[in-house]
Design a protein around this nucleic acid. Structure first.
Lengths: 192, 192, 192, 192
DNA sequence: GATGAATGAGCTTTCATTCAT
DNA sequence: GATGAATGAAAGCTCATTCAT
């Protein structure tokens, strides 16, 4: 099926170039398919983008969920959660960057709305994980929605840095930093 | 002098649309200037972008520095720092978004390098603030560089959310969330 | 195939206007084709120019060669040669002018090199004809390369004049002048 | 006087680039004068071109005339004539190329007409020299006008070649070739 | 289902010309 | 007389989209 090949190619190109800089020509070339075929399967660039993002998220959410079906003590669980999210970001960096950064105008407004829906689903997914921790009384009382956004922002910026400066930091350092900040903050315990 | 008017217009348009989607026509129209005038003052779109970002950062850094010349107890100082950064982001949101998000390829490589330099200067500025806290023994031992990136990422994502969903959250809520996470993390104190 | 139509239109416009003054819009209009089609078939104006010149020369050389496969007494042969070259210039004046006049800077250096190669091929073609005459001992000993250039220069200037001042001279007068000068020079025989 | 500086600069730039590729900016820079000053002295680019060409020819004609006021035996006189014309071309190559090559459209039609007048004056000058030779019975009966054009074409193409391939031929070789062809043609004397 | 030649609106950029000083 | 900042029409080129095959 060419549809699958196209979506894979689209993920590659969109994540490398972003929506506006991605060229239908390049996607067709990467997919090894004629340009007309893109339009045979997707009515427009916007719709192809939408499909790419939407179908991509399924995979990610499924992968995280699988990893989190374990039953561990919370501190380990929490670290694992962070580690998993970062691993998934790095593994799906192409898509992750789209999900967390792309909201520039110029895209079909209907499609833009759908992208935002997908982004919200991703944030909801994180928020949900935090909510579970809160319900089990492991987390401080907080505005969960904003916390999820803060977490996503941190993952995004640290991973972007990691990807952009290969060799300068290890994945472990990223995970450590994120875990450290998220668990106990920046301040020394005695400074309360 | 039309140069100033152009830079202001460029900041508005670039931040709203991003580099690639920004149109020289629109910048000229916003600046109320003929299109040729853009090219009389800046040799290309890339150079105009570069100038916008570079000259914009001066302002921000100067403003933050002024606010931080105070001498307060650290916990208040720390909150003030966060509050100031968020205020400045919201006030200079156009530029801040450029600084924190734009690194898409397709820009002149020389210009791209300059943008990255500016971004690094911005991160260095944050890192420097953290370093001072560390020297005064208020902060945990940490990789300062990564921490600065994490802080910037959080500010960026929370402010973007705030700007994108007007009325849904107050600035105070943003500051509270950020302060809470950054000072003591997400976990309950008894869960160490 | 629109490629052929474009090359014909390009020959018309380039020869009338020269490389720099020729407009892609006009070529498209003459070819009765959309502007994008030019760029679908040729990657740039320079490449279109290059193709026009290169492919055009094939035709000319072939046509001259056909005419010269005869076996005549040399003086007639020589006159025929001149007549043929002038006829071909006038018939292919569009191309001929490009070949003999265009070497202005501003063209892609790679393309410019190709044009020069084509010009050299054309001159080599003339030089070759002269060489054959020399081998058969009909021509004086001479620097063949320079002689070829001189011949080409004469053809060019006389034909340009003829085309530019229609009705002022006949083709026969042109041929006579050229034949006269080339065969026995300007001086009277007794003046040696 | 800035007018003189401008005309000198214009001669340099126009001859190097041709009319259409010459930039008013560059002429102003070479003349070390503000761009507005060009328009203060000449009403348009076309008029500046016209003035450059017209005033330049005066110099050349005067220089040739001076050299030819001698009274020598004709064969030497003839060679001197050729030598002088080639020397002047090479010395004033910038202007010579304009005079002999530039006739592309796009120039003000009134100006174009003036350029053509200047070109005709130059050809008349050559024709006049030939006419004197004919009157003294040194030259074959010929269409003088066409002969002048042929001579000019030869000078032009040989000199262009010489300038374009520095070191490949000496000025003497050029003169020899031209003299040889013009005096006795290409054919061997016994082949009449 | 699939193709790719063809399209044309729209982009960045250039440059002769103007005009307030 | 002289300046140079400002202009805007027009150029080369790009690329999402269409459609006949």
């Amino acid at each position: 099926m060419k549809r699958k090949k196209i979506l894979e190619a689209a993920a590659i190109v969109f994540s490398k170039k972003g929506f506006h800089q991605a060229r239908m020509d390049e996607i067709a070339a990467v997919a090894n398919v004629a340009k007309g075929t893109l339009y045979y399967n997707f009515s427009s660039k916007s719709m192809l983008f939408s499909a790419t993002v939407t179908e991509g998220l399924e995979t990610i959410v499924k992968q995280v969920s699988e990893k989190l079906d374990l039953d561990l003590p919370f501190s380990e669980h929490f670290r694992l959660l962070i580690e998993t999210m970062i691993s998934l970001y790095l593994k799906n960096s192409r898509l992750a960057r789209i999900l967390l950064n792309e909201l520039s105008s110029g895209i079909d407004s209907r499609v833009l709305a759908e992208i935002e829906t997908v982004q919200e689903r991703f944030l909801s997914f994180i928020a949900n994980l935090l909510l579970k921790g809160q319900e089990r009384d492991y987390l401080k009382p907080m505005n969960i929605e904003l916390a999820a956004i803060a977490v996503a922002g941190q993952i995004n910026s640290l991973c972007k840095y990691h990807l952009h400066n290969p060799g300068k930091t290890s994945k472990e350092q990223i995970v450590d930093t994120l875990f450290s900040i998220l668990s106990t903050g920046l301040l020394k315990p005695d400074n309360t």
